[in-house]
Design a protein around this nucleic acid. Structure first.
Lengths: 153, 153
DNA sequence: CGCCCTATGTCAAAATGCTGACATGGAAGA
DNA sequence: TCTTCCATGTCAGCATTTTGACATAGGGCG
């Protein structure tokens, strides 16, 4: 008699694979995998590419900025930056002249590498975008953002 | 008149943060973070919880099945299963009686733990779902799946 | 000026995940 | 039947990421 349950109100589906979260994770995993494969041919990892893109759009970002922008911890971003610096794709002052922030910039080699990799990544983006009806694209972005905010950033 | 545009072929947007991929990753990261926090109070990690959910819906899944279902490699899934077994939440035969597959099952303790954690996770799902207009929910799921398939699984 | 509070960069350790490789069991096809 | 091919489970090594902690720089405010 313990199955006197009135109703599972907030539980629309009974199979996890029907949940929004599951679909979201699956799509994200597919993107990650595809990017990983595409970027490997350019000698870049996904976090590395992400950093280059952010730096191209906003030169001088700090390590902490990049961490937030790539959704990882400061420590992880730091490791990525070391790799990029060792590869000669970015520059980073050894010491800060003003505050404590060490502004990061792309080198010409970094620009070049980014542009090459970007072509491959944008092709993936194109495949994704074309998979959804054009009139729904805006709504999709809106809803993704809404979900993000509902979860607290 | 402007829809006469041949098309801005591969580069629709100029800021990465406008791209679908970025929004997708951000939403996924937000979900991951929220789940991580919620599950910690129940002594579970996200991969562990994912396995429990899959096993609850489909008892007897193999390690490889769970790996595919949680979007990680067989090796990673194996580590997760060891943790779950050590915690007494699942059972797994030491040797296969039929093929090579070792079917995994939830223990009563596993069921219990899952049910407790599920409440917390479903609350998150609810927040997400309610953030998007109800009439668009189905479309959202459809589009997420379409993007997944466009990227090759 | 001096105090608190936040943010940043970094170190160390542990956890987590992946690549590469191998042996084995089953299934499909010659 | 036998042989080839694929999937599974697992080991080892490496890469990545996170947690936790710490010192320091700056802004806000008494």
């Amino acid at each position: 008699m313990e199955d006197r349950i009135p109703v599972p109100p907030p539980h629309p589906a009974h199979d996890v694979t029907e949940h929004v979260g599951y679909r979201l994770k699956r799509a994200s995993a597919a993107l990650r995998g595809a990017m990983d494969k595409a970027l490997r041919e350019h000698g870049l990892t996904v976090p590395q590419y992400s950093c280059l893109e952010l730096l191209d759009a906003q030169p001088g970002l700090s390590n902490a900025d990049l961490a937030r922008g790539t959704f990882v911890t400061r420590q992880s971003a730091n490791v990525v930056l070391r790799g990029l610096k060792e590869a000669g794709l970015i520059t980073r002052p050894a010491s800060a002249d003003h505050g404590r922030v060490l502004p990061v910039h792309l080198t010409p080699a970094g620009q070049e590498r980014l542009h090459a990799a970007r072509t491959a990544v944008y092709a993936l983006e194109k495949r994704m975008v074309e998979a959804v009806p054009e009139r729904r694209l805006t709504a999709l972005l809106t809803d993704l953002d809404a979900m993000t905010e509902a979860l607290g950033g």
